[in-house]
């Protein structure tokens, strides 16, 4: 019963998102972004609804979605920490920082801490190459980081 309601809710919310974007040219990515913004991932029920409304097959929507690293098919942890792995951050010790964080959190890239708090993702440049190393916690940017500063970011979120 609960499951069914949830699935109906997802369909309803997704339909509302589609209503907003339907008139746009090439609405699929904006819809997927909003769906993920709403649920934290793109649930299967949403996928089916999108396919139905945009007159695409499920495979087409899934194919597009799976091309882009941003879109998830499973919920992430309560927070997503994206640590920059690209060259400017490397030049300022970013690789060691990433290793240290993985060790401290006890997880590897794309994994979530056992308490469900933080998912760790690599990112290739945040445009903060002049204050490297850099990371993004949810939507917030942070530069000139070291291990302590990152651990503090993790501590500060609930």
């Amino acid at each position: 019963m609960a499951l069914q309601t949830q699935s109906q809710d997802i369909e309803k919310e997704t339909a509302a998102i589609i209503d907003v974007h339907e008139h746009q040219e090439g609405p699929l990515l904006p819809i997927l972004h909003d769906v993920q913004g709403k649920f934290g991932y793109v649930p299967e029920d949403a996928l089916l609804k999108i396919a139905d409304r945009l007159n695409l097959s499920r495979a087409e929507v899934h194919g597009t979605m799976s091309f882009y690293p941003d879109f998830r098919t499973e919920p992430a942890g309560r927070h997503v920490l994206k640590v920059c792995r690209a060259e400017a951050c490397q030049s300022m010790g970013g690789e060691k920082l990433a290793d240290d964080i993985q060790r401290d959190l006890g997880i590897k890239w794309h994994e979530t801490t056992p308490d469900g708090k933080v998912t760790l993702e690599p990112v290739y440049c945040l445009g903060l190459c002049s204050c490297a190393p850099a990371a993004m916690m949810d939507g917030n940017l942070h530069g000139r980081l070291d291990e302590d500063a990152v651990l503090k970011l993790v501590e500060e979120v609930k």
Partner: peptide
């Protein structure tokens, strides 16, 4: 419009596909 984490979408034709709502090939 926002991309979704794919570097290759900076290549102009991949970008156009992405804008059209397709894979960024």
């Amino acid at each position: 419009r926002e991309g979704a984490g794919a570097y290759v979408c900076g290549e102009e034709t991949s970008l156009l596909n992405s804008l059209e709502g397709k894979r960024g090939i």
